[in-house]
């Protein structure tokens, strides 16, 4: 099953590559847009779920429950779950936009390496994986160069002999921005979901940056484009929390 998904992704990438000018970087960007479009309904649902969560946290009922069970954490958690169920809220909604991409990321990484076939053994695997209609011999060799990068290798931009991991930095930055901008400010900073969101906002950028620092740069292109598209989708719905990246404003909200 997993192999079939990786093969499917590899073939989609190669079809885009074949018909879009033989540029693998462009193929990855277009693939990312396609995958975001495919996930669009699910993402919309998650955005609504996040909005519902925020409304719940600001509701009178929830604040009363918090006051009532402030000394009974177990009961408080039970009541919180009851409210989630009643209102159809997913408590992990704020994490999902990022987490949902993980399986795609896994498969895409393998697909990029497979499709670029930079060794004879990989070419043989690709030969067996590619759909006959694609005509692999027509597109071999696959151009792995995009801008200054070799998409099959970890990326470094050399300035005066020093290798700067530009894509890893951009990945960390856009991951941070996406998490911050798309996570609504919590009514109660000590709430479980608020703690989780805060932790996610801290750790995920480093984690994604580390992944793209060590693995093929084609993956970094996917993550950066995906993050930017994610922010754009939230912005189009008017759900971007711009105040989250302006420290002054955040402090004022907390002081209210």
């Amino acid at each position: 099953m997993w192999e079939a998904i990786v093969n499917l992704f590899s073939n989609i990438l190669l079809i885009i590559y074949k018909y879009m000018g033989g540029n693998f970087g462009v193929a990855i960007i277009l693939f990312t847009i396609l995958s975001r479009l495919a996930l669009y309904p699910l993402m919309q649902q998650q955005i609504k779920g996040t909005q519902a969560m925020q409304e719940l946290q600001n509701s009178k009922e929830w604040q009363e429950i918090q006051k009532k069970y402030k000394d009974d954490r177990e009961k408080l958690a039970q009541e919180q779950l009851r409210l989630y169920r009643e209102l159809g809220i997913n408590p992990f909604a704020s994490c999902l936009p990022t987490l949902i991409q993980l399986p795609i990321m896994f498969a895409l990484y393998q697909s990029v390496v497979r499709a670029l076939a930079s060794t004879p053994a990989q070419l043989l695997i690709l030969q067996n994986a590619v759909y006959p209609i694609l005509g692999l011999s027509d597109i071999i060799p696959i151009n792995s160069k995009f801008l200054w990068m070799n998409l099959a290798q970890p990326e470094r931009l050399y300035v005066f002999g020093v290798g700067i991991p530009v894509l890893a930095i951009l990945t960390a930055l856009t991951t941070y921005l996406q998490t911050k901008l798309t996570t609504p400010p919590p009514a109660n900073p000590n709430d479980q979901s608020a703690i989780m969101s805060k932790t996610m906002a801290l750790y995920m950028p480093f984690f994604m940056g580390w992944i793209t620092y060590t693995l093929a740069s084609g993956l970094a292109v996917y993550i950066i484009v995906s993050n930017l598209l994610g922010i754009a989708q939230y912005a189009m719905m008017g759900k971007v929390n711009w105040s989250a990246i302006l420290p002054g404003k955040t402090v004022r909200r907390k002081q209210k």
Binding site: M105, F106, V113, S118, A121, F207
Partner: peptide
């Protein structure tokens, strides 16, 4: 759950990386 997801992701991609190390005959 968050750390578990991060850990699994790390392990999976590390596994991918190992599995995808260019092999030869």
């Amino acid at each position: 759950p968050l750390f578990a997801v991060l850990l699994l992701t790390g392990l999976f991609l590390s596994g991918c990386a190992t599995g995808m190390v260019p092999s030869s005959w």
